[in-house]
């Protein structure tokens, strides 16, 4: 039996939001946990993030949003992934998201939303138990 390949995650900053402290910290934690990490850099459009996810053949997309635009940006990235035939790539994320917005985001297909105060280890554990390699390499 072949070893499952390393998980490959895209950490994305979408929209105009310049807060990249959280994205960089979580990306480093994912890398230190042994995942491969593709970081998009700042100010990406939903289109670019979805296209990068497909091109880089990632196992999941993690979005960091602190601008308040989460209700638009999360669903938009999911919609674009579906349009690109990559609707099976799970999308999760974190940032400043009020609790009452989370059910609607989950209904729109966001797998999980991590709010401020989540420990890095908790996020890494969650990825280990919820994200699987999409194809055997």
């Amino acid at each position: 039996m072949s070893e499952p390949r390393k998980l490959r995650l895209l950490v994305g900053k979408v929209g105009l939001d310049g807060h990249d402290r959280g994205a960089k910290v979580i990306a480093r934690a994912f890398r230190d946990a042994g995942f491969e990490v593709v970081y998009t850099g700042l100010h990406q459009s939903p289109e670019t993030v979805a296209a990068t996810a497909v091109q880089e053949d990632v196992d999941a997309v993690a979005l960091s949003i602190l601008s308040g635009a989460h209700m638009h940006l999360f669903p938009r990235v999911i919609e674009l992934l579906r349009e690109a035939g990559a609707g099976d790539i799970p999308v999760f994320g974190g940032g400043i998201v009020p609790d009452e917005d989370i059910p609607a985001l989950k209904a729109a297909g966001v797998l999980e939303v991590f709010t401020p105060g989540t420990s890095l280890d908790a996020a890494v554990e969650w990825v280990r138990s919820h994200i699987r390699p999409r194809r055997v390499a």
Binding site: G15, L16, H72
Partner: peptide, 22 residues
């Protein structure tokens, strides 16, 4: 708001969902 901080107008496609938020 973020569109203004980035020197963009409220109807710029990059600003969807951000107008008046922060």
């Amino acid at each position: 708001d973020l569109p203004t901080l980035m020197g963009r107008d409220s109807d710029d496609p990059m600003c969807r969902g951000e107008v008046g938020k922060e």
